Computed example of a mutant assay.
Amino acid sequence: MATPHALSETAPPATPKSGTIHPVWVRVTHWLNALAAILMMLSGWRIYDASPVFKGFTFPTAITLGGWLGGALQWHFAAMWLLVFNGLLYLALNLVSGRFIRKFLPVSPRAVLHDFIAALTGKLSHADLRVYNAVQKCAYLFVVCDLIVLVLSGLAIWKSVQFPLLRELMGGYDNARIVHFCAMSLMAAFIVVHLAMVALVPRSLLAMLRGR
């Protein structure tokens, strides 16, 4: 028969009945980042259609933003500044407060694989929303890196002459466009998966809206 001590080590943690899960600054920067990323993605599709990277593939006009190339560029650059400044604020506050280390580290391939299998088999606990599982940690670290690549590749396209080193690191102007497109595609895939996970655990949406 298992001892109470053994049971406490294996049982999933219970969700605390009170207290803040996400402070106000996390919620505000999260939603602003989400808004900026979506606006940039939709307007970016319209910009892409004006000069497709992959010939024969374009996005339906109905799901793009801006109406025309000039309008799409205005939306894109406006959202870009929001994403850059709000993203920097988000990262700075996470690092200064120590939240980045507490929430996202450590993470290992073995832990990600274990939690991924547990998620597929319906055995992954979401009892305590304060604690991110390894799959969540990996996904959030990935999206931060992906957004950085999006911004840098976008700079290499927008200011190709002013940032020659960045352009060359991307493999040239044309390759920078491919990198930007691939990073955008990965961002779209992340959003789809993220929304699916929120649908499975709706309490996580409430926590990001009201903080608890």
Results as ranks from 00 to 15, higher is better:
A34S: 08
L35Q: 08
I38W: 06
I38G: 01
L39N: 09
L42A: 12
L42V: 10
I47E: 04
Y48C: 04
D49M: 11
D49W: 07
P52F: 03
V53L: 11
F57G: 08
F59Q: 03
P60K: 03
T61L: 12
I63R: 01
I63T: 09
L65H: 00
G67Q: 05
W68M: 10
G71H: 01
G71D: 01
L73H: 11
Q74S: 10
W75E: 02
W75C: 01
W75F: 12
H76Q: 04
F77T: 05
F77H: 12
A79W: 02
M80S: 12
M80N: 12
M80P: 09
W81I: 09
L82C: 05
V84S: 04
V84C: 07
F85P: 06
N86M: 15
N86S: 13
N86V: 15
L88C: 07
L91A: 11
N94K: 08
L95T: 15
L95C: 11
L95E: 07
S97G: 13
S97L: 13
G98E: 03
G98K: 03
F100S: 05
L105F: 14
V107Y: 02
S108L: 06
A111M: 11
V112M: 04
D115G: 06
F116P: 02
G122W: 04
L124W: 05
S125I: 10
D128I: 07
D128L: 12
L129P: 04
R130N: 12
R130W: 04
R130I: 06
